[in-house]
Nucleic acid binder design. Structure first.
Lengths: 182, 182
DNA sequence: GTTGACATGTAATTGGTTACATGATTAG
DNA sequence: CTAATCATGTAACCAATTACATGTCAAC
């Protein structure tokens, strides 16, 4: 149930409406915790009802501005300081690797090559983000820099691994191709 | 909907009962695609009903052995060769990083240090797995070796990153501690 | 006046988790 | 005979996704 904590975390910096919050998810948290509009509005309602948030202003078009309460901050701190993060990631790209023998060696190598390219692309995108962001903009950007670095290292590792794996299969693939030819 | 493909993939190697399949999930796929018993039995039923699997034997205790059908293989191949993997990972550990400024510098550094240790532990566990597995045991173990290497590299990267990040904050933390003292 | 951004919500469905519930067979 | 393993299923619940639905305000 980390969505609630992501929202509390964003609201700890400053109050926002559901609409604002969504934009902040899209810009800063998309890569670590994507959220949809329905989810955000639904959760805002629940958090307000349980007293972790409160409505501090109403504006045009039914705009409601939410702020974190003392209990909200307590819950957020509790989550950060006294619980351990869930670490089970499903990884579809890696699941496929287990079944690569069902493809021809060439297809398998092509799969890994595409993965390498995709990782490189994503890394390039992150680098773009890094250049655009104003790094003198509050605590969130300091932390954001750490998270960004994680992303860069992850994508670099993925690219290297995929190229290595392709090479591992490549030997076999090439050998089989040779055998087929002769 | 990758669970179905994971199951088809395992059954492509050889037929199995729900019970067998669960054990194979636990041993080989836990790290990339965990599945619960309810899920496995539920999905087996659906896959049999839609003709991607068929029951090839019934044994003691109501045991039903499932085998992949031609359509099942076609679906599996389609998934492998003609679709791109979903790549959005929610990452709770990294989400927390965005909000580390809500902790004291010492707590934040401690969080990252714990993350580094955890990554190291998980890496050690994977190394254990690598030593135990019989690497001459069919195509799944060839592919498994590639997946294992991914895990090793991932955990190594996570450990290095967490140590680096702790150092980044450590400067600030130490400075603040000094300021507090004087 | 019309387009685009602002703004909020609900409903249906899917995928996954946890808990419950039951019973047969084998090995010691 | 008793414990462990084998074996299958259902029900309730939760989180997330997609689609639907509505309406306001500002700028041009």
């Amino acid at each position: 149930m980390s969505l609630r904590h992501a929202m509390l975390g964003l609201l700890a910096e400053r109050p926002a409406s559901g609409y604002d919050l969504m934009k902040r998810f899209e810009t800063s948290l998309t890569n670590v915790w994507p959220a949809t509009q329905s989810q955000v509005y639904g959760e805002l309602g629940k958090l307000a009802k349980t007293g972790l948030l409160e409505i501090v202003a109403e504006g045009p078009r039914g705009r409601k501005e939410y702020a974190i309460t003392a209990e909200g901050r307590a819950e957020l701190r509790h989550w950060l300081a006294e619980t351990r993060p869930e670490r089970s990631h499903r990884n579809e790209a890696l699941l496929r690797v287990f079944f690569l023998d069902l493809l021809t060696p060439l297809e398998a190598v092509a799969y890994l090559a595409t993965e390498a390219e995709r990782a490189a692309e994503l890394r390039a995108e992150l680098e773009q983000v890094g250049e655009k962001v104003d790094w003198d903009d509050g605590p969130l950007s300091v932390n954001g820099r750490l998270a960004l670095e994680y992303g860069l290292r992850l994508r670099a590792m993925q690219e290297e691994w995929a190229r290595w794996a392709a090479e591992q299969l490549g030997g076999a693939g090439a050998a089989e191709s040779e055998a087929g030819k002769s």
